[in-house]
Computed example of a mutant assay.
Amino acid sequence: MRHVIALGVSDTGTRAALVGPDGTLLYEEGRAAGRGAGPEAVMEELLPFAEELRARGRDRFGTAAEAVGVAVPGGVPIRGTGVGSGGLCREGIRERLSRGLGRIPVVLAPEVRAAALAEGRLGAGRGADRFLFVSIDGRVAGAIGTDRGIETGAHDRAGAIGHVVVRPGGPVCGCGRRGCLDAVASAAAIARSWAAASGAPVADAIGCGRAAGNGDAAAAGVWQAAVEALADGLITAHTLLDSRTLIIGGGLAAAGETLFAPLRAAVRERIAFRRVPGIVPAALGDTAGCLGAGLLARDLLAG
């Protein structure tokens, strides 16, 4: 049976699958980084893992995988020093995997774009000709989906909604500017604000949302401030893109209606003359990046 390898890489491990020509998941496996957290530790084990998957596919289905798709963390540059030389880059990863697997084709994409592709074809964006996918975890990342696929932009930076300034003069963002959406509405930013407001040594964003829902005034203030900042960022993107659907994924989406009810209300208040887009949770969870990587590998073969 023809199949491809799909790999979804995070800082702490890798999710992998063998995917059939019709998109069927033939085999799935997750593996934590064995040499400590961080992208370098994960990447050191990626080729051996891919080799194991290829051998498993050959044993089970009688043929070896014909292509590999990899979803990588968004901060991995296209070019750079490469794996094994003190850094990571997509071209280095692609070359190492292709060479190690007998020169089969390998395609890489940032995890948020791979996840958006999967949501567009198989999940919450299915049937939407234009959508914006926003993942909210330790950072806010975005991807622009159309009926043609995922937009990359002229310099491979399309969809970077996390670096839209929504609170000028606000907290410093990792990019060096102040008041970016990433710095005020990511799960990490909410956790920091909630820790400061509550005095708790350990705090997390979902816990803040839960406390807000239970009537904690300090938590409600932190949560509402983040929701309004997120709404401002979404309105800016929607004004430019005219998306039919806004898909919210990542860990913060697990808050459910504690997030989505006030977020929809805040967007409606700001929408002005435009149509209100649908605002929906992502459907594929933390498997989306790996699924999207499989779709990218299938597209290589179809092309």
Rank of each mutant, 00 (worst) to 15 (best):
V4C: 04
I5D: 01
G8P: 01
V9D: 08
S10K: 02
G20K: 02
G20T: 09
Y27P: 04
E28H: 08
A32C: 01
R35G: 12
P39N: 00
E40H: 10
M43G: 01
L47G: 08
E51H: 04
E52Q: 12
R54V: 10
R54G: 10
D59W: 02
T63N: 07
T63Q: 14
T63H: 11
A65E: 04
V70G: 04
V70N: 05
A71E: 03
A71P: 06
G74A: 14
G75E: 08
P77I: 05
P77E: 07
T81N: 07
G82K: 02
V83C: 03
G84V: 02
G84W: 00
S85M: 09
G86P: 03
G87L: 00
C89M: 00
E91G: 06
R99E: 14
R103I: 00
V106P: 06
E111A: 03
R113H: 15
L117C: 12
A124T: 13
R130E: 09
R130S: 15
S135W: 03
I136K: 01
I136F: 02
A141L: 14
I144H: 02
G145E: 05
R148F: 13
R148Q: 14
I150G: 07
E151S: 14
G153M: 05
H155Q: 06
A158I: 09
A158G: 09
P168C: 10
V172I: 13
C173D: 13
G174I: 05
C175N: 11
C175I: 12
G176M: 07
G179I: 12
C180I: 10
D182M: 02
A183D: 11
A183Y: 11
A187K: 03
R192A: 15
R192N: 09
A197V: 11
G199D: 03
A203Q: 07
D204C: 08
A205R: 09
G209P: 02
G209I: 02
E228R: 10
I235F: 08
T236F: 06
H238F: 11
L240S: 10
L241Q: 04
L246G: 09
A254M: 11
T258E: 12
L259M: 15
A261D: 15
A261H: 14
A272K: 11
R275A: 13
P277D: 06
G278D: 15
D286L: 05
D286N: 13
A288G: 04
L295F: 03
G303F: 03
